[in-house]
Every structure is written in C-alpha cells, then in structure tokens.
Computed example of a mutant assay.
Amino acid sequence: MRVLLTGADGQLGRCFQDRVPKDWIILQTDAKSLDITDRVAVFDVIDSFKPNIIVNAAAYTAVDKAESDSDIATLVNVIGPQNLAEAALISNAKLIHVSTDYVFDGRAVTPYKEEDITNPLGVYGLTKLNGEQSVLEVNHSAIIIRTAWVFSEYGNNFVKTMLRLGADRQSLSIVADQRGCPTYAGDIARTIVQLIEYGDVKGGVYHYCGDKEVSWFEFAKAIFEQARNAGYAGNPEVKEITTDEYPTPAARPTYSVLDCQKIRQYPNISESDWQAALSNICRKLI
C-alpha cells in the first residue's frame, strides 16, 4: 500500500502516521513540501509517487480568521481538494478527504445524516462544503468523512487550551448552549486505516464523530476531571455562559451532532470513545 498523506503535521496527520501498518509506504507532506493549491505540484508528486491512496488531512481550520481571509480559505479548502480529486482520478488512486460538521447550520434537534440539507453559517463551513462538492463533482469514487470537535495530544485544540488556561486562572467561562460530539483524531485515523484495509468502500459522504454528545461546558468539565485524575494541579471554577455572552467573528452551529450509522456498515468501525481517549491524553500531557 502506497499512501500520500497531506497535512502530515496536523492533529489527524500525526495520529494517522502513528497508526498505519508498518508495511505501508507513506509519503508525508505538509504545506511546505506540497502546496495542494498548486495543481502542477500536486500532479507532479502523485505522478512520481504513484499512490494507491491519497488521504487529505490538510485544511484551513481557523474558523474566525476565515471570515476576513476567505481567499486563502477557499484556496486550501476548495481548490486544493479539487486538485487532489482530479489527480487521484487520473492516477487511479482512492481519495479520502476530511470535512466538518460546520457544513450544517445547527438548527436540527436530531443527529445530522449525510443527506440532510447543508447550510453553513460562515466562511469556513462554506469553503469546506464547496470543497466536498468540488471533490465529488470531479471524482465520484472519493470518500468524504465529516467529523467534529477534533482533539488529540498533538497540535492546538480545545483540550490543550483548557489545560493551559486552567493552570493559570481561577475561573473559566465556557459556552454551554452549543452541543456536539468531541472526536479523538486517533480514532478518525484508525477508521481511515480500516476503510483502506476494507478496500471496497463506496464513494460519497460519511459521518464520523464521538459517541456521546456534550456542550463545550460539559466537555471542559470532563477535561478537568480527567486531568485531576492524572495529577493536574489546576482547579479552576468552570462557569456556564451563552453564545451571546461570548461573541466571535464567525457564527457556530448550536447543534452539530452527527449520525454515524452509515459508516458503521463497514467491519469493526465504531464511534470515537472520546472519554477513554481524553483520559489517555491527559496522562500523556500531565
């Protein structure tokens, strides 16, 4: 198996590298070694390496900054995936592209299914949705995995932010009226490996996220509970606030729980046990 990995220095990229079988050959690329927005560079690398699989873990994920940086967000989240999809089609490689819950507006009251109507609230979600559409218009066999609230021992994420702030502050105010499913990047990576090993996965959109929905406030409480179990010295008071009390440049979905039944048709795939992952990460970080 020959795998081209983009976004190798991100949370998912690093977790994927930790979990691939040892006999797979992986070409790990980041923005410096492969600019996916450069069509010629993408085609050259794929023509040279000749991958069986392309895993696109590269993305512009700065949700608020995207509101004023839409051109760059569009390049990375739309043009880049389209380039990979075209090159994958021509080279007969399978493309696995990662997307987000932010393609939805959060007005649902039950978990979102893959076929539900999309309606992104901001530039980030819109570019990710346009990226999905560009990929599937070019390459019907591509697999798109929408996920949510990603965290890991790597990079920057909500868990590491809470631990950093909690070490210095007596109290933290966390939004309690947005609900979603935290998802461990290592579980997403494991699932991608399983899909690759299965082989005959139908192209299209699949949802994959954590197994229990919570608010950001509840997630923060769980983080500090697991951190204290691991010997964390910080003990901030965690206070509930509303979205209106914490304004941001980009609107967030109030409810972004994803229904993961479709992807579970394939063998051995289960939703992310984010609580177990959180416990393990806290032991690593503290």
Results as ranks from 00 to 15, higher is better:
residue 44 D to F: 13
residue 39 R to E: 15
residue 132 E to C: 06
residue 77 N to S: 08
residue 14 R to G: 04
residue 123 V to M: 13
residue 147 T to S: 07
residue 125 G to L: 06
residue 264 R to I: 11
residue 200 D to E: 15
residue 231 G to N: 08
residue 30 D to L: 07
residue 28 Q to R: 12
residue 279 S to N: 11
residue 80 G to W: 05
residue 265 Q to I: 15
residue 47 D to E: 14
residue 166 G to E: 04
residue 103 V to G: 10
residue 228 R to F: 07
residue 201 V to I: 08
residue 177 D to C: 03
residue 212 K to L: 13
residue 108 A to E: 06
residue 113 K to L: 14
residue 149 W to G: 01
residue 132 E to I: 07
residue 169 R to T: 04
residue 168 D to W: 09
residue 285 L to H: 03
residue 198 Y to K: 09
residue 71 D to N: 10
residue 17 Q to F: 02
residue 197 E to L: 04
residue 124 Y to N: 08
residue 115 E to G: 11
residue 249 P to S: 10
residue 37 T to N: 00
residue 98 V to Y: 11
residue 243 T to Y: 05
residue 201 V to Q: 01
residue 199 G to W: 14
residue 248 T to H: 06
residue 164 R to A: 13
residue 216 W to F: 15
residue 129 L to R: 09
residue 113 K to R: 12
residue 85 A to K: 02
residue 264 R to A: 11
residue 211 D to A: 01
residue 23 D to L: 00
residue 127 T to I: 07
residue 138 V to T: 12
residue 42 V to L: 08
residue 69 D to I: 11
residue 66 A to N: 09
residue 41 A to L: 12
residue 174 I to A: 11
residue 45 V to H: 04
residue 29 T to V: 04
residue 181 C to H: 06
residue 133 Q to T: 09
residue 279 S to R: 00
residue 267 P to H: 09
residue 201 V to S: 02
residue 262 K to D: 13
residue 23 D to Q: 04
residue 259 D to H: 08
residue 43 F to G: 00
residue 60 Y to K: 01
residue 169 R to V: 03
residue 100 T to H: 10
residue 56 N to V: 14
residue 127 T to V: 12
residue 163 L to P: 15
residue 117 I to M: 13
residue 205 V to L: 11
residue 88 A to C: 05
residue 40 V to N: 07
residue 134 S to I: 01
residue 115 E to T: 15
residue 4 L to F: 00
residue 121 L to D: 03
residue 237 E to N: 02
residue 25 I to P: 08
residue 144 I to C: 00
residue 108 A to H: 10
residue 216 W to G: 03
residue 155 G to E: 03
residue 188 I to G: 04
residue 152 S to T: 04
residue 211 D to H: 12
residue 14 R to A: 08
residue 30 D to E: 09
residue 140 H to R: 10
residue 241 I to G: 09
residue 76 V to L: 07
residue 283 R to Q: 13
residue 157 N to Q: 01
residue 13 G to V: 14
residue 223 I to E: 01
residue 135 V to M: 04
residue 36 I to M: 13
residue 277 A to I: 02
residue 104 F to K: 02
residue 148 A to P: 11
residue 260 C to P: 10
residue 138 V to I: 08
residue 255 Y to D: 01
residue 33 S to N: 11
residue 211 D to K: 04
residue 202 K to S: 15
residue 191 T to C: 14
residue 56 N to I: 14
residue 151 F to A: 06
residue 184 Y to A: 12
residue 28 Q to E: 15
residue 151 F to M: 07
residue 254 T to E: 10
residue 202 K to C: 12
residue 283 R to I: 06
residue 113 K to Y: 15
residue 171 S to I: 05
residue 38 D to C: 05
residue 252 R to W: 04
residue 157 N to A: 12
residue 252 R to M: 01
residue 169 R to K: 15
residue 197 E to F: 07
residue 16 F to G: 09
residue 77 N to G: 02
residue 176 A to M: 00
residue 231 G to L: 03
residue 39 R to Q: 14
residue 43 F to Y: 10
residue 105 D to E: 14
residue 156 N to A: 03
residue 70 S to T: 15
residue 80 G to M: 05
residue 215 S to L: 00
residue 85 A to Y: 00
residue 239 K to P: 07
